[in-house]
Amino acid sequence: MLLLTCPNCGLAVEETELAPGGEAHLKRFGPDSTADQFEEYLFLRDNAKGVHFERWRHAYGCGKWFLAARNTATLEVYGTYSAQTTEPPQHIRDEIARRTDR
């Protein structure tokens, strides 16, 4: 059972206190989008074996969403970060690079 640190309240909490939200950093496509764009937004997911960026809500705690960089194969967690961003921040990318390189 995963243990993730909610960056909003600073607590390392277990999975039962969290609600999963699927892949992170999706770009929303609205009414003017093409069928391909809309398909990409609504249905197509990386489903990566390895590094994955995903959404979690600290549902039983502060109620806030956050994002996690996690390895789906080893369950290693590279870091958690604010949901108010459109891409993984540099410190998370650096951490992934550092750890996947070893």
Binding site: A19, G21, R28, R55, R57, A59, G63, K64, W65, A83, Q84
Partner: peptide, 13 residues
């Protein structure tokens, strides 16, 4: 309520 919070926190923050 969770749906609203999701959009407010993660899309239109």
């Amino acid at each position: 309520h969770g749906w609203m919070e999701d959009w407010l926190q993660c899309e239109w923050w």
